[in-house]
Amino acid sequence: MVTVLHAEMFSEAEAARLLDLPQSTLHYWLEGGTRRGVKYAPILRSEPQGGRAVTWAEFVEAGLLRQYRRRDRVPMKELRAFIDKLRTELGVPYPLADRRPYAVNKELVHQAQISAGLAPEWHMVAEVSGQLLLTGPSEQFFDRVDWEGDLAAGWRPTADEKSTVRIRPDTRFGRPAVKGISTATIWEQADSGEDVEYLAKLFHLTVPDVRWALAYEESRRASSSNRAA
């Protein structure tokens, strides 16, 4: 069944920018590639597609991998085997964009990690005092997603849990927004000299909403400048 998870939302370059990842890293996760003479299949796709469009589910799943990212230490083979196991057992094409592995199927995740030979630093769940708990990176990712049933319906692009900035496939074509208002639009108005209180009234937002939007845009633009340098 085709759902919003399958919707092509971003170009690869735009998705990488929103995720604050090098585009080459995201492309490698989506399309695979050859490194040191070894050819690797994609992690997030069943097979390479040759395109540069990124679906909503691929964007969300890349958000999880971003929590674990280690330069030159991405275990392509093991992660691919792990995700394939979850795909098969859950019967869904995008298991990392599904709520169940984080909430009610931790035992399945635990077994899939072991079966795939995934190193502990990449585990999504860990056994603690006889209980299976989400590891730090997977818990942080889970908390950044807005879940509607088992569906990933939104993603908070900032680490601060108080932020009201969201990326949603049904709002502003997937661009960052606060309560439906583009953060870029708010930032442009502020950059032209409008104060926070005026912007809150103009867009029918609270002052904290405006501040979150501006903080996000300033951080994103600073990150883009640093990468360009």
Rank of each mutant, 00 (worst) to 15 (best):
S11V: 00
G50C: 06
A119H: 00
E89W: 03
D98R: 03
L199C: 11
L214M: 15
D98Y: 08
D84S: 13
K162Q: 15
Y68F: 07
R70F: 08
K106E: 15
V128T: 13
A228S: 11
D150E: 14
G193Q: 01
G149A: 02
A153H: 07
L134G: 14
R69L: 13
S223P: 09
K85D: 14
W155H: 04
D209H: 07
A41F: 09
R17C: 06
R69I: 13
D143V: 15
V38F: 14
D209R: 11
E58D: 14
A7C: 05
L205R: 06
L44N: 02
Q23V: 07
A41S: 11
E217W: 11
A200K: 03
V145S: 13
A62W: 01
E89R: 01
H123G: 06
R45E: 09
E148K: 00
V145E: 10
I186L: 09
P208F: 15
R166F: 06
G180R: 05
T158N: 07
V128P: 11
L86M: 12
Q67S: 15
D150Q: 13
V145Y: 14
G33A: 11
S223D: 04
W155Y: 13
A153F: 12
K162G: 14
F142Y: 03
D146L: 14
K85R: 10
D209K: 10
